[in-house]
Write a protein that binds this DNA or RNA. Structure first.
Lengths: 241, 241
DNA sequence: CCAATAGTGTCTGTAAGACATTATCAC
DNA sequence: GTGATAATGTCTTACAGACACTATTGG
């Protein structure tokens, strides 16, 4: 049934109550804890990376986990995700999108915890990691992760590829100006494959995705490449590959 | 944005005592209520329909709302959605997929309620509506809905279209055997536009989506159409339109 | 034979994918 | 001039989309 989470075949043994649940005061129901977990992606040195934190307490003490936190009672889910992202990376205005909500009853040994996952695409140049335990790890060689975070990260990679294929999200990984080779490197890194340079550039130009700045990259010991800037909003829907 | 210094990732001071997991009990945090709301779609009489229930108490008493319910502490999110679907329609084995999680702090006037929305695609012939207030409404002419349900329903229609364009989900709206005209009607209804009959059928056959049953529809006062059955699992990824 | 719907093929234009050479800079 | 990377165009093939007539049944 649903995509990422393995569905439990628990038969709905439930007393079929004629009253709709909405008629009740929600406060009288047992309530799960709700967290956000963020998959923070960056592309650096031709590698797709995910930011992980090392847990310093039970459960999964010493293991790597996705950065996350509990949702404040008066903040929206998006705001909670922005907060976690900002706490870990210092960046604020980046591409951030809700991914999926995971809620298997036993996914956290402490108590019932439902997590709303988000993924973020950041330009590594803008990140200032705090002095806590957060570090980058290759998405293609992740360590074992705490909780169900391995499955969450794998699902995030699928969605990331979809985003780059059908939207302009790739710009999020790049600085304000960039070369077409930089852009192609992002695609090759995220899809873990190579693309033909002429076809790639033709596509980018046909779709009018970039604008020539008139500047060129300097201090390179070969023909200096042109610098471009994005000509579309990040996340606009455009079929690219 | 809230104060970045108060990190929620892992509460700080920790005594390395494996026997006291309660140290970081997430239960110490305030917890929101969590519900599932389901957008149950069907196609009937060339109309895309959504199942709505009439609220019988505050808030939004007398208004229409998406069917939903609170999540039991020991059931998964998928199971909760299946339960709500079964309570309202009697159907059990249908296409059901998580849509999005909505959690604006003030979306419910009673208390903080986060809702995990699901959408389901059912064949109207299999539905047995209970004797409660659930009835079908055209997705193209919805009444005002309670809470933020109007926005949820609109988003669901977008995702539904995406699903039919890129997967075999359309079969979920049809019985075991069907004609190609039936299938085309599903597409025309969901996309609210017409498609060329020859191109549509060519595509369906080229993608090997259906299998001839050898049977024909009877009791029609015109040339009897062939009956087909699906040749792919519901939800398989295939570019159709 | 009339009404109603089923069923079928060709042509044209566009876009994807394969592919090799020249240009420009630092040293 | 050498090493390194930038920049560019053509051809072939596959798929999307426009388009009109014949077939089969019940009444």
């Amino acid at each position: 049934m649903s995509d990422p989470s393995e569905s439990r075949e628990t038969p709905p043994e439930h007393t079929t109550d004629e009253e709709t649940p909405e008629t009740y005061d929600p406060a009288q129901f047992d309530r799960p804890s709700v967290t956000v977990d963020t998959i923070i992606f960056t592309v650096e040195n031709d590698d797709l990376k995910i930011l992980l934190v090392e847990r310093d307490s039970w459960p999964y003490e010493g293991e790597w986990a996705l950065p996350g936190g509990f949702i404040d009672m008066d903040e929206s889910l998006d705001t909670a995700a922005e907060r976690v992202l900002e706490e870990k990376t210092g960046v604020t205005d980046v591409y951030l999108e809700q991914l999926y909500t995971f809620g298997e009853p036993d996914r956290d040994p402490r108590t019932r915890v439902i997590t709303v996952s988000y993924f973020a695409l950041v330009n590594s140049g803008e990140v200032a990691l705090g002095d806590d335990q957060a570090t980058w790890h290759s998405a293609y060689d992740l360590p074992d992760l705490a909780f169900d975070h391995t499955g969450i990260a794998e699902y995030a990679i699928k969605r990331l590829r979809w985003k780059l294929e059908y939207t302009t999200a790739a710009f999020s990984f790049l600085p304000e100006t960039f070369t077409l080779t930089d852009l192609q490197n992002v695609y090759e890194t995220v899809f873990d494959q190579t693309f033909d340079k002429r076809n790639f550039r033709k596509k980018i130009h046909d779709l009018d995705l970039v604008e020539d700045t008139g500047e060129k990259k300097t201090d390179v010991s070969h023909r200096p490449p042109k610098l471009y800037r994005a000509n579309k909003e990040v996340g606009e829907i455009v079929e690219i590959l």
